[in-house]
Design a protein around this nucleic acid. Sequence first.
RNA 1: GCCCGAGUGGCGGAAUUGGUAGACGCAGUGGACUCAAAAUCCACCGCCCUUAAAAGCGUGUCGGUUCGACUCCGACCUCGGGCACCA
Length: 747
Amino acid sequence: LDWSRELATCEPEYYRWNQWFFLRMLKAGIAYLKTGAVNWDPVDQTVLANEQVIDGRGWRTGAPVEKREIPMYYLRITAYAQELLDALSQMPGWPERVRTMQANWIGRSEGVNIGFPYTLAGEPKVMRVFTTRADTLMGVTFCAVAPEHPLALHAARDNAPLRDFLGQCRRGAATEADLATQEKRGMPTGLSVQHPVTGADVPVWVGNYVLMAYGEGAVMGVPAHDERDFEFATRYRLPIAPVIDVQGRPYDATKWQPWYEDHGRCVNSGSYDGLESAEAIERIASDLGGRGLAEKQTTWRLRDWGISRQRYWGCPIPIIHCDECGAVPVPEDQLPVVLPRDLVPDGSGNPLGRHAAFLACQCPACGKPARRETDTMDTFVDSSWYFLRFASSGNAESMVDGRAAYWMPVDQYIGGIEHAILHLLYSRFWVRAMDDLKIVNLREPFANLFTQGMVLNEVFFRKPATGRVEYFNPADVDLKLDAAGARIGAVLRADGQPVESGGVVTMSKSRNNGVDPQALVEQYGADTARLFTMFAAPPEQTLEWSDEGVQGAFRFMKRLWKAVHAHVSAGPAPALDPAALDAAQRDLRRQAHQTLAKVTDDIGRRRTFNTAIASVMELLNALARFTDGSEAGRAVTQEALEIAVMCLSPIVPHATHSLWGALGHERAIIDERWRTPDPRALEQALIEIVVQVNGKLRSRISVPAGADETQMRTAALADAHVQKFTAGLGIRKVIVVPGKLVNVVAA
RNA sequence: GCCCGAGUGGCGGAAUUGGUAGACGCAGUGGACUCAAAAUCCACCGCCCUUAAAAGCGUGUCGGUUCGACUCCGACCUCGGGCACCA
């Protein structure tokens, strides 16, 4: 460990480079200022993240959250969408799961941008929509625009009911999950557009299910082949026109069927009749393309990253607002803009806005009095490049230096799966932006990624007839078991009365089901706590917490300790002569080296610490049975104990440090080289192979290690059990897997 | 709704490339030691029939491929996670 590289992202020495690089991005157009819709808590006067909006209300104030348009700085991550997506397929060191999640999040979607012409105040105009199903164009019976769409705003100018409706949409459910389940509602704008093929009038509605931020903020409504359009059309009695035939199945417009969205063959589609969906999409795109009313288009789910936060604690955005010059970047030589430490957040709004000394400044452009930006950056900015700073620590002159080229990319990155999208996607983008601005030469920050699973725990509660649900920590609950050890109930230890179980879920304060590993550390020591945790399950897996098995880990540590000390109490072991061992000694030595090989692979490649521990447990069990006190026996024991201790040293470092010394080593085990198994120790004269008859295990036989197929086959057919099970049958085939098994196929 | 992942004894889990299902541990049962208990040690510990057995059954369900399937394929069920009106 090199503590000289330690850093804290809240120190000006670190976050000044956030500001510096932000200004670089601003200059390059990667950062930009835009007014966009956010969740706004009208009581706290702050923006809320989606996660902080519960049932449409602010998590602290309980006030209904509004959608508000406020100016924010954005980073143009969407400009990198294609390369961020493409690179995922060349990242074998990342888990498939994370790559899939990122690909879904980026959400590339190929379709056609289609124009619907209309006339407004005598001016010819075109309303554009994006669709992946241009083949259903002939089934359009309406169009719907988002409440924020210019056409909706225009129509609302002299339409009071529509204006009210747009207001309701703005105040409506705020979380995306709520939006998804919310009833589809809409209102006609009174405007209509022309169908680009038939020229027919198509009414334009405002729909609360249309997202301004995706595509064109407007959709063509094809109720026959889109579930949302179907729901909307049914509610407002709009016509439903089926235009796709899916394998001749009959269409019933009174009832939605999921297969209505399947691809098929065009019908009721004029000159497109008979075309397959894919062909129809191409034809429609090229036919309308000739008139400038269609264009193939790729759309992304990914949005630009809004980094402004109306929060005190964060890296100040280095901008000065001048009445004359607008938003002016803080000149580089005035960086960093330091966050004042002499104010106390009072829980409402951003206290920076009330800090006179922080606010007051001069416009760098014109020199007149101006006001400092009070928004701070999203803290994900800090975590997007800290690994580069570790590799360039102490450099006051530049953000990163040549040392980063040596250390990057990070060989092995470890984090919880909850970072699969946010942090890991932001970092990938940020590093590319740094590369493009010639600050570093790096396209991907993390060569190998390991994601631990989450630890879950059971929830216990009581629900009184009146009043609030009360949650109890699992540590305070006793399980009631029957004679066979099966669970029959749970009671609160304090009063012995039953509690209900709410299932096993992620740990949270609100459900009082967290655990503090400190209790285990105090009772058993840090090594046992570590051993137990790592033995419980492979680290990638979600784990249901239980400390039931911790006794076993503690017992194992005691057994290992006693085995080493019993061995060394008889004095130093003699040197090992591998050539002069009897069969039992050779067997133990082979097992020791097999264990070393397995643990090396389990820890180094597979990262399955649980199976590594299990194999050392097996070795210790073998050592317990091995009671050979001869010179050679003690030499083999010494080596086996050394291997056991070394194999466990990454997992239980304190105990193995002590045991390594007890085994007679001067050097600390942490400074020792990892051993490699002796190939000769792994050799075996005779091996046991499995013999099957018709795929069922019928016998085990011993053959020379190098036995070829013929020898194995002969030995297997000569076996008494095989003869018993094949008696009276003809032998049709014999399958031989060298070194493993023989399968006799008889009938 | 869509996309991932998982389903194996009473429990956590193992089986790495299609080749011995249940390693290792917990819990449990029996025994040794002890005045007794704890600790420790030994043995047993998937189901089923049995005096017994290398009999039969068995990896969520149903079907398929294969000499051979926990592993591959198809359909379904359940649970967990991610995304969630993305046109």
